[in-house]
Design a binder for these strands. Sequence first.
DNA 1: GTTCCTTTTTATCAAATGTTAATGAACCCG
DNA 2: CGGGTTCATTAACATTTGATAAAAAGGAAC
Lengths: 194, 194
Amino acid sequence: MSQYTEQVKQIIQSYCPISLNSYEALSHVLKPEPYPKGNDFIKKDRRNNKEYFLTEGIVKSYVLDPEGVEITLSFFTGPSVLAPHSTRTRNGISNVSFKALTEIELATADAKEFELLMIEHLDIRAFGHRVLENELLQKIEKEIGLASLSAKERLIRFREKHPVLESLVPHTDIATYLGITNVSLSRLRKELMP
Amino acid sequence: MSQYTEQVKQIIQSYCPISLNSYEALSHVLKPEPYPKGNDFIKKDRRNNKEYFLTEGIVKSYVLDPEGVEITLSFFTGPSVLAPHSTRTRNGISNVSFKALTEIELATADAKEFELLMIEHLDIRAFGHRVLENELLQKIEKEIGLASLSAKERLIRFREKHPVLESLVPHTDIATYLGITNVSLSRLRKELMP
DNA sequence: GTTCCTTTTTATCAAATGTTAATGAACCCG
DNA sequence: CGGGTTCATTAACATTTGATAAAAAGGAAC
């Protein structure tokens, strides 16, 4: 059994248990896909038909605001699963872009094939549902934060949730995620310093 | 054919065409459910197992922020479909609350039964998927607005999207939706006056 | 109509955040 | 090693938004 399929198994099992049988079936449709730092491996308004497991590295999803600035929607830190195909695409066309913030290792599966696996295997289906639920809970949580917390509080919560990111990714990406300018982020960082 | 099932048909067809056969099957699982103004008909942390069509009236989805203030997540204006069960619940427990902002008329279906209909009928399945896609697109759009636009711009866009709401629902609900205080909303309203 | 209650507006002041620009630090490339 | 580039910090000032309180405007009940 190859290295990356074992890692994918770990990722799935962090959500819910999966049978050897299901895992075996899944491993047949997985392909490794490495990308260098800075690569936009999912592009908004382009066709996309894959599911992604992030075995190694850091990724952001983003869109462009009216002035063309990249607004970070989410961060993903491996090992973990990226947002499901159904939440990223409309009619097979991607709504958002994904960029590698570090060198990354992905394991991908065709979305159609993965959907078939979800139909055949109850545990894979359960996994898929939990990922979807999680995705939406995250969005609601972020929405509440943006609507009801100060920038300082949002940064504090961001640090609790992503303790390592601040030292690994550009602060500009974190700033747009928090809905503030990078200058404000720098100011808050100083203010929160011990 | 009763009044409300006909209205539900219109709602579905605003998303995509549906066959008479599928519609017939659907109408058997629909039940009318009226509520008075102010009623919380979906409560966070309580069990919920229904899908909802809003044939008449205005609804908000909301959660409580750390201080107990109701933060509006979305508005729904009939005739339309409410957020799907799968995006509202986790293990059958609701993540959010829904409140009638006017007297409302709902048509409800058991979520399990509706899921079966989606499996049996391709067009109902297509409808379900489009609703889901739409829901996520709305969330992304709102996320971008909160992260990258000023409060004034957010109000302008809100008016474009919901031209009538400002005169029909409490401004406090709109303010928390926009991520500002009701005092700031009042100030912006004055500023944007002709 | 009058009273009571809630919502919205207005005003004042304080605090948070944005804008712009300059400086310094880190890094890559030649 | 030097030069160029990007990114983070800092400063000064402008603008936006929040907090509080009081006044005005609406609505509902009687």
